[in-house]
């Protein structure tokens, strides 16, 4: 994947910046012609991924890099951080519904399940990003809802 620094938007990875990061992606999605309802789906898919970077990637502070790409039928979202190696695709998900009663039910795990449901494709690479080792998550979103979505 060719890299051009100008394609990437850098944000400090803090919870105070989450809304700004989210709005950056949502505005790009709107400009790509994605409907309001689909934009909510998109948000559902990326929220936990970005919150995980904010909460867990760095011991102290660090940045998150976002790139949005618009093609004819797909909208791609790339999320990069220089934090601890972490592949969210391999994280266990709770989508397989366990039948335990609510008092026993484990809380959590939905975010990654939503990511897998919302995006048509997810690719994780630990790679060199402008000279440093980084987590790079590439997420592909169908601009128009597909029967399998």
């Amino acid at each position: 994947m060719a890299k051009n620094v100008a394609d990437w938007q850098k944000f400090p990875a803090t919870i105070e910046n989450y809304d700004q990061i989210k709005d950056y992606i949502i505005v790009a999605a709107e400009q790509a012609g994605i409907s309001a309802r689909r934009r909510l789906k998109l948000e559902l898919g990326f929220e936990e991924v970005i919150i995980n970077v904010i909460n867990y990637a760095y011991e102290s502070e660090g940045d998150i890099f976002i790139r949005c790409s618009n093609d004819e039928k797909i909208f791609s979202l790339d999320i990069v951080d220089y934090g601890t190696p972490f592949n969210p695709i391999k994280k266990n998900d709770a989508r397989t519904l366990d039948k335990s009663a609510i008092e026993d039910r484990k809380i959590g795990g939905f975010g990654i399940a939503f990511m897998k449901k919302v995006f048509a494709e997810e690719i994780y690479r630990r790679e060199n990003f402008f000279g440093k080792s980084a987590n790079h998550l590439h997420l592909v979103f169908n601009k128009i809802s597909q029967p399998t979505d």
Partner: peptide, 17 residues
């Protein structure tokens, strides 16, 4: 409610418990 994310679902589960 326009939107509820996984974080919101965790709130529902906590309230249920």
């Amino acid at each position: 409610l326009e939107y509820i994310s996984s974080a919101g679902l965790r709130v529902l589960l906590s309230l249920g418990k």
